[in-house]
Each structure stands twice: as structure tokens, then as C-alpha cells.
């Protein structure tokens, strides 16, 4: 049976799409058939982050409205086998995203995929609610910053009350914290919430910490999910995150300040 995972946060710009792209790519790299769906109708961006923006012909809403079938709309990734992208519509409005329509597509995808990753839009409007409604598990992407943590808590409340699992009284959606844009040296200095602070406030289990890294912007510039940048710390952090999701017991890396050489300590700089 396929697992539906929503990548959500409430707040915008915290790294939902970056996480969706890398998480889905990582699952596919490990041999699981994976589909990643962009729920941000009207403001699609997953296609850009995945580098397939010029191959979009049909989209999610076309399939819901029976204007195309699923196989026509799914874009097969050129780098990683088993990975497919379902782009959002850029022109229609979010009202087209009906519960029945989304359920129909998810059921069809469940026939042939192991994992279905739903990239939620920011906010708590229809697109966000639809992306989490059918979820079995949730990756809650949070930055170590007050507004992001508060919004994540709000989303946790919504997962616990307005998902299908909540409405039907099933086992609750399994929640995982992804702490992104973490800067250990700033946390050490007391200028940034630490991993333990965020965990204490939100009270959910930690799946991964993604360090603040220039590679994230560079890879989005190039349309390559950052997990494919194997030499980078952010890429390695996502890779660990995927392994942990699949049950491996890996220690968290990138939580402590990197030791600097004598000259760097003397003259500053990173």
C-alpha cells in the first residue's frame, strides 16, 4: 500500500519545496517508485526546483477535470529512475482543487507508486488543507525563528483535527520535524533557537536538521534537487533524513559549530 506524505509548514519560504524535491528524489534513488505533487495552484514552483519546467504540458487540475489522464501529466525525471512529478496548474484558481478530485488522483497513483509526496502551498487555505487531508505522514518544515515555529504549531493542530485520519478517528497522521536553515554557530552564540528549543516547543520527533547552506540556492538556480549535490552539507543532511525516514538509525550531523582554523578565528569570515 502506498504512503502519502505531506510536506507542510504554514509559513512560506521555509523550504517546503526544497524539502519535497530532495525527499522525493531520495526515496526514488533508494528504489521506491515516488510521485511528487505540487499543490500550489497558481504559483507552481516545484517544476523549477526539479528542473523540469519546460516539460510541463498537462497539470494536476487538467487531470482532476478529466482533460488529460494521469500518464500524460506525470513528468518522468531524467536523472533519477522511479521519480515522477505532477505539476500544479499555473492558470486556474485553487477552487478547482476538490476533495473528490484529489482523492481520485491519489487513489490512482496509489496503484503504481510506493510513496506520494504532496508539496503544500504556504498558508492554511484550500490548497494547504487539500495537500494534508489525505496524508498518512507529515514532514513539518520549520526554521529556527519565532514566526515559523508558531505557524508549525498551528499546522500540527490542523493535522490533528482536520485531516481525514482525524475526521475518521483513525490512527493520527505521523508527524516529523524537519528543521531547515539551521546555523549551529548562531545557536551556540544564543542568537538563534537551538534544535532542542524547537523540539521542546513543538513536541514532535526530529527527522532531520538541514544546515543553512549556499548550496541550496545554487542547486535551485540550476534546477537540481540539493540531495543530488552529494558533496554538500545540505545534500548530505537530506540524504540522512531520507534514510532515517526509511528506518535507519543515523545520528544527527551538522548540529555543532565547525572548528575554524587559527587564521580564520583571528580574522573572522566563514
Amino acid at each position: 500500500m502506498a504512503t502519502v506524505i505531506v510536506v507542510t509548514s504554514g509559513k512560506g519560504g521555509v523550504g517546503k519545496t526544497t524539502t519535497s524535491a530532495s525527499f522525493a528524489t531520495g526515496l526514488a534513488q533508494r528504489g521506491y517508485r515516488t510521485a511528487v505533487i505540487d499543490f500550489d495552484v497558481g504559483l507552481r514552483n516545484l517544476d523549477l526546483i526539479m528542473g523540469c519546467e519546460r516539460r510541463v504540458v498537462y497539470d494536476f487540475i487538467n487531470v482532476i477535470n478529466n482533460e488529460a489522464n494521469l500518464n500524460q501529466a506525470l513528468i518522468r525525471d531524467k536523472r533519477v529512475e522511479n521519480l515522477y512529478i505532477l505539476p500544479a496548474s499555473q492558470t486556474r484558481d485553487k477552487e478547482a482543487l476538490t476533495k473528490e478530485g484529489v482523492e481520485k488522483i491519489l487513489n490512482e497513483l496509489k496503484q503504481s507508486f510506493d510513496y506520494i509526496v504532496c508539496d503544500s502551498p504556504a498558508g492554511i487555505e484550500r490548497g494547504a488543507l487539500m495537500s494534508l487531508y489525505f496524508a498518512d505522514e507529515a514532514l513539518v518544515v520549520t526554521n529556527p525563528e519565532v514566526s515559523s515555529v508558531r505557524d508549525s504549531d498551528r499546522i500540527l493542530g490542523i493535522l490533528a483535527s482536520r485531516s481525514r485520519r482525524a475526521e475518521q478517528g483513525d490512527e493520527p497522521v505521523k508527524e516529523h520535524l524537519v528543521l531547515a536553515r539551521y546555523a549551529p554557530e548562531r545557536a551556540d552564540r544564543g542568537d538563534m533557537l537551538g534544535v532542542d528549543d524547537v523540539l521542546e516547543i513543538l513536541g514532535i520527533s526530529l527527522l532531520g536538521v538541514i544546515p543553512e547552506s549556499p548550496t541550496v540556492l545554487q542547486s535551485s538556480n540550476a534546477g537540481v534537487p540539493v540531495i543530488l549535490e552529494e558533496g554538500s552539507d545540505a545534500g548530505a543532511a537530506y540524504s540522512d533524513l531520507v534514510d532515517r525516514f526509511l528506518g535507519k538509525n543515523l545520528p544527527h550531523r551538522f548540529l555543532v559549530t565547525q572548528k575554524k582554523g587559527f587564521l580564520k578565528r583571528l580574522f573572522g569570515g566563514n
Partner: peptide
């Protein structure tokens, strides 16, 4: 942190404040 940072005023522990405010509002 370079040698010049030692002459600046000590950093405020704003993270502790953030945590306290978040715990209350949450």
C-alpha cells in the same frame, strides 16, 4: 568571530527570549 569582535558589546541572548515568548503564545 574575528579579533575585532572582542571589542564589541557582548551579544544579547535573544534566542532565550524567543523561546520564552514562543512557549507562552503556543
Amino acid at each position: 568571530m574575528g579579533i575585532f569582535d572582542y571589542f564589541r558589546s557582548p551579544p544579547s541572548k535573544s534566542a532565550a527570549l524567543a523561546k520564552e515568548r514562543l512557549q507562552i503564545i503556543v
